[in-house]
């Protein structure tokens, strides 16, 4: 096995860990709403990893449709996470983002073709990336106005840090994947950058889930 196979396998295995932790540990009451907010995303990455492992790795079924659907589902899960986290004060921002992404998703579906699906998903990634960055910024801003506690004990800090790193690292590879594949044939090597970001995010989310839960009595 070479690095191109090992890293995706590590990422897939790590994707199972956050949700699995919640089965064996109970939610810390102090972080109840954060843990409830991240639950859909945890389920999504769990199901995503399961799909990739069974359908993509073993059955070798093309996952282009799944990737497109996953991008949209990922947005929905993150939209829910940030909306729960930031509350109703930013409702216009959330409604606006939802509208833009739904319109973008419908356009992508209209123009969808197997050969260009990665580029189309990358276009959808632009508003999602902006949404994650702006929401994270608002969360940090709000946090400093509240009672000061150490960032290292807040599960959401790990979730948000992981998301920022993942989206930042994966943006250009998603955007240029098709060009890299056609022109240089190096897309798989460069794809490892995306997978590395994914691994970092899963580790951060796992730490966050661990911090947000406690040993069952």
């Amino acid at each position: 096995m070479n690095i191109k196979e090992i890293l995706p396998l590590i990422a897939t295995i790590l994707a199972f860990s956050p949700l699995t932790i919640t089965f064996f540990r109970k939610t810390n009451p102090c972080f109840n709403y954060e843990m409830l907010a991240i639950k859909p995303y945890l389920w999504l990455i769990f199901i995503g990893a399961f799909y990739e492992l069974i359908f993509t790795s073993f059955l070798r079924i093309p996952s282009a449709y799944w990737f497109t659907a996953y991008t949209f589902l990922e947005f929905l899960a993150l939209w829910y996470f940030f909306r729960e986290l930031l509350g109703l004060r930013y409702m216009y921002f959330f409604k606006g983002t939802m509208f833009i992404v739904i319109v973008g998703f419908l356009i992508i579906l209209y123009y969808w073709e197997y050969n260009i699906h990665t580029t189309l998903e990358a276009y959808l990634l632009v508003p999602i990336l902006l949404f994650v960055f702006i929401s994270s910024f608002i969360w940090f801003k709000d946090l400093f106005n509240k009672e000061i506690i150490s960032l290292w004990i807040i599960p959401s800090f790990y979730f948000i840090s992981g998301l920022i790193i993942y989206f930042s690292g994966g943006f250009f590879i998603s955007l240029l994947y098709d060009q890299l594949k056609i022109i240089t044939g190096l897309s798989e090597t460069n794809w490892l950058v995306f997978v590395s970001g994914l691994i970092i995010m899963y580790i951060m989310i796992t730490i966050g889930v661990w911090k947000g839960t406690e040993k069952k009595p």
Binding site: S136, I164, G169, I183
Partner: peptide
Amino acid sequence: GTGEEVVSLFYIGTAIMLFLAFGLL
């Protein structure tokens, strides 16, 4: 040349994005 440009764009773009992300954190 086009291939090199795409690869450069990818590396520089990703480096800038990661720099911004880690910088923010």
